[in-house]
Design a protein around this nucleic acid. Structure first.
Lengths: 184, 184
DNA sequence: AGTAACGTACCGTCCAGACGGTCGGTTAGG
DNA sequence: CCTAACCGACCGTCTGGACGGTACGTTACT
């Protein structure tokens, strides 16, 4: 069975996903033991791929950013109209949340210093995408903040909101990208 | 010296503030020892006021909500005009951040299960305040999300934003409360 | 008023257990 | 046969919190 054979990148990915699952079930302070068990690998094997617990969490962070950027790219409209980057970010934010956007996972990520640097890099990239997007800066800023708020609400008030309310918020934000002047 | 004498509520408050300071300096996983030292109390004394580490964090959470609500009340306009509750929340969100809104502190709070319940209660209260505030629901929702986003940005991108940009965002949100129809 | 009795605030020590990480060994692949 | 993937036992450290004790404040009774 070829899938069972040794395969470093595959094992790496499986460990990362197992870490996310273990974080959700065991809380933000999971032991490496629990993660290893969840991944079907020994603790030594886990530490072969990630030299420390921090390294493992950083792996999770990188995976998360990769996934988000891929989602934005996938949702980008082909025609080059004003606000297309912003709209892609809006759609990406409202995509069904994966394993990553769970409170326990986020808590674990927050505990690691490297997060700040990755966030800065990502923020700069995202800002570049939306800055030359043809929207009024004030408008772009309002939408960005609202998107951050949606993300936070997903974390803090899960399932407090119906899918209709969600869709309404998304449509409002999308509509806001169809005008280019100042909001007020 | 009367201030030095035994005084349970005073000690309790001092321990809570010390916990916040210790969280900031020692990170989200401070030991009770460190908190006790910071508060100028023995570990045994600390555990007399808070029966467990969780109980201490819950104390922090309650203090935080109390403080926020007091701030909103302080910033409430006397005249009963449409959008006054929303404006108070906007001003409260943009108040200079205290000890509480530090990443390490928030990370610690996120780790405790009781947070969810307190958040639900607070969210309901805040929703009641803004629901009968005379603004169009869509408008109120947009502003709420943007405020959440500002809070998140404070945590993740501290000092990435100039005070002018901050003020502009605040003024935009305040202006949005001065119309009562739908946004688009 | 004096004091005994009692409850509460606070102290300092101790320990069981958990956890991160190391290391020598073993197996598979090229 | 050599390197990389992987195992599993082991160790040193740290921490939460239990516990037995002390000192202070307050009430009750004389």
């Amino acid at each position: 069975m070829p899938g069972e054979q040794r395969n470093a990148p595959r094992t790496r990915r499986e460990v990362i996903e197992a870490a996310a699952r273990a974080l959700i079930t065991h809380g933000p302070a999971v032991s490496l033991d629990a993660v290893a068990k969840e991944a079907g690998v020994s603790k030594g094997g886990l530490l072969h791929h990630f030299r420390s617990k921090q390294a493992l969490i950083v792996g999770l962070i990188d995976e998360w950013f990769e996934h988000y950027d891929a989602t934005v790219a996938r949702l980008l409209e082909p025609e080059d109209t004003p606000g297309r980057w912003t709209r892609a970010h809006i759609r990406a934010t409202f995509e069904p949340a994966g394993l990553w956007s769970h409170p326990s996972v986020v808590t674990a990520l927050l505990g690691v210093p490297e997060l700040q640097q990755r966030l800065d890099v990502a923020a700069t990239r995202w800002r570049q995408q939306t800055d030359s997007d043809g929207l009024h800066p004030q408008r772009a800023d309002l939408i960005s903040r609202a998107l951050d708020g949606v993300t936070l609400a997903d974390l803090l008030w899960r399932d407090q909101e119906t899918s209709e309310e969600r869709a309404q918020t998304r449509d409002l934000l999308l509509k806001l990208t169809e005008q280019t002047g100042p909001v007020v």
